[in-house]
Design a protein around this nucleic acid. Sequence first.
RNA 1: GCGGGCGUGGCGGAAUUGGUAAACGCGUCAGAUUUAGGAUCUGGUACCUCACGGUUUGGGGGUUCGAGUCCCUCCGCCCGCACCA
Length: 833
Amino acid sequence: MALGKYIPEEVELKWQKVWKDSGCFEVEVDPSKPKYYVLEMFPYPSGKIHMGHIRNYSIGDVVARFKTMQGFNVLHPMGWDSFGLPAENAAIKNKTHPAKWTYQNIAEMREQLQRMGYSYDWRRELATCRPEYYKWEQKFFLKFLEKGLAYRKHSPQNWCPSCNTVLANEQVEDGLCWRCESEVEQKDMEQWFLRITDYADELLNDLKTMDGGWPERVLTMQRNWIGKSYGAELTFQVKDMDETITVFTTRPDTLFGATFMSVAAEHPMVEALTADADNKAEIDAFVTNIKNMDRIKRGADDLEKQGIFTGKYCINPLSGAEIPIFIANFVLMGYGTGAVMAVPAHDQRDFEFAKKYDLPIKTVINPPDLHGKGEILNESEMGEAYTAPGVLVNSGDFDNMQNEPAKKAIVEHLDKSGLGKISINYRLRDWNVSRQRFWGAPIPIIYCDDCGAVPVPEDQLPLLLPENAQVRADGKSPLPAMEEFVNCTCPKCGKAARRETDTFDTFFESSWYYMRYCDPRNDTEPFSAEATDYWMNVDQYIGGIEHAILHLLYSRFFTKALRDTGFIKTDEPFANLLTQGMVLKDGGKMSKSKGNVVDPNAMINEFGADATRLFILFASPPIKELEWSDQGLEGAFRFLSRLWRLIEGLEDTLEPVQPTSFNDPQVDAAKRLRFKEHDTVRRATRDIENEFQFNTVIAAVMELVNEIYALKNELKDAAPRALSSAIATAVTLLSPITPHVCEELWQALGHTNTLTKQAWPTFDESALVKDEVTMVVQVNGKMRGKFVVANNTPKDEVEKIALGLENVTTHTDGKTIRKVIVIPNKLVNIVAN
RNA sequence: GCGGGCGUGGCGGAAUUGGUAAACGCGUCAGAUUUAGGAUCUGGUACCUCACGGUUUGGGGGUUCGAGUCCCUCCGCCCGCACCA
């Protein structure tokens, strides 16, 4: 058939329709085939697709198509993370309902994704703002409540004054709201939490099982975030009071060196400790000052250490020494117990504090070299704390012990009198899932004056978000003022009661959507065991690094929590994670403020979806940053046109043969082409399997096309089947990357199947064996010549040829040949001096 | 400060893992074709040198017959964590 001119839009729309009509991307559970689940992080439907989306989804699409061609039953779904603040803000601006804005955006973005030709099973599309979806997470919440995994607590929370809602710890970056970058305040509130800390250990330990599957830096970030530290809790009696203070320390071995104690300004004992102090007013001012300091300033690394004496002392449980209790600005209530035993000789912070307030410094860990000489580290000469290992001194019965074993010995000793125990501390906090916003899934709880917080009965789910709500100009949720929503009766006692008006954090929805994709239309359960047993877990997950903690940690937790509530059998949701690099323009991030945003639609209209996909995958490996280039995109288009013209020009010659099917080379050119063809399959397969290096896959196919161009006139009559085979190979290898144009060319070659049903080409090792090889000759490691010999020519023969080369002798004349190294079929290095 | 990554032509980036550095593409130069072309084709293009040849993977040192690749050290950039007791 005649190809005519390459008009991307025509070709692309044609094949998109063929794929859609044939349902070739629709998959079902099929235990007879190996499954492969490839997933890209689903988008928030902001309305316009951007280059980051295109990159993310193009990478995923190549993986999906490649794995399909390799014979896997590939699940590749797409949907919408459609609850969230921007919809609400847009609705306020346009005086409409967030749902309307959201569904419009979804329709637009769906069209744009479809225009890219991605191989999604669109039947599985889901939107998290639909009751059919959030119904199930309301159910999960009730189950978590039953299991004690969800609970309500009154405590200081991160409050974003601009978003009008609380934030989880993970959603505060450097004291700023992750969404709007407003300064986050502290506010006492009663909120719903999920006990992610119950899973701290499992979340940490299982990171080991993902080694190799996840990027090292994401694993590190999660480890840091969980922040496990081993230590002890030690209890100090307060002198002249019937009170104790417990500290967390990782260095119980230094207990004898504790010369004072520091507590946080928020510590619950502060009021009692200072109640009868002479300078009560001064202390109160100091405490208020710290509490009012904003998070950024308080967390700054150059914050000067400040403290104030409470007037009270406590008793060192081992030495019996009386040590003063200070309130200090660097002690955090949110970590450990909010109280620290201060050992200035062996902790740099305590050292600085002691110097400033002239507090005693006492060496209890002696450096090994000094200890050997019978000397003890002199406190008055110390310029900084000694934090390295050593031997205990000034520590009573524990003297001369190595400090590591002493840790355990001291805690065990204190344990007998109930004053100390081994303790493991985490930085991770429970997940606050309450949000004071409208556009989210309602939390299914009813408050009754008599019965307290009562779960909405399961048969009343979904608890619907009212469609008639009118968003408020001030950004506050309209729910509390909606009587028809708030007023209800207590499911337990039947008396009048009020509904919870907070909604779930939107990370709640994204924590399990990948499970719902397995069985998205199920209306009797969130997903069937049959579906999730087969499809889960996700084999390859692809998305941005910005979720290294947030979404990825919550999802890991959710998977484990759903496992323990009997919904699923999986331990970890994502076996392999690829974090794609950012798309840059002129060396920087694309942003509206810089005015350097490239609109994908314009590119697709001018050069087509295929050229856009080709460029974005060719310009850089997926994990690295990508510098956008309009000229590069044109180059991609040029290559596709060149391939198109190649086939168009050979229409009378080419036959519909299978890739790598030509195996009877009679002439040198055919042999050469066959070698290149098989070598390209080898390289392409290897590079895809090695971290999806599509850039080099494309380069290899370009080389093959160049080779075909170079040999086509010679082979047109001599070996037309060699050309047909090589071209079939090029088109097939390229098809996951530029699927539309490849389908068109495949059809033009005379094939009647579509490439979606074509197997990934295989190569023949024997085709890669060359009759002749080019060998390089070096003299003292410098290249001096080349020669061609028969493959596997014996070493001594090769050596003889090499030594005889003219350009070699000019460099060896007058020198003694010390050694000749021969690497078969590759290189000869002559060592001479 | 701690942890991780990176540094290769004018640019994006390759290098079968210790064996011809700069594949592929962009840009650019020359030629061909064309009424013309930002179309297409052919050829050149790391640097210095008329040439022979020499130099080159952030700098310096080392291991090796041989180093972009391994080791040490310094410099620069990026990312994460950071008063976490």
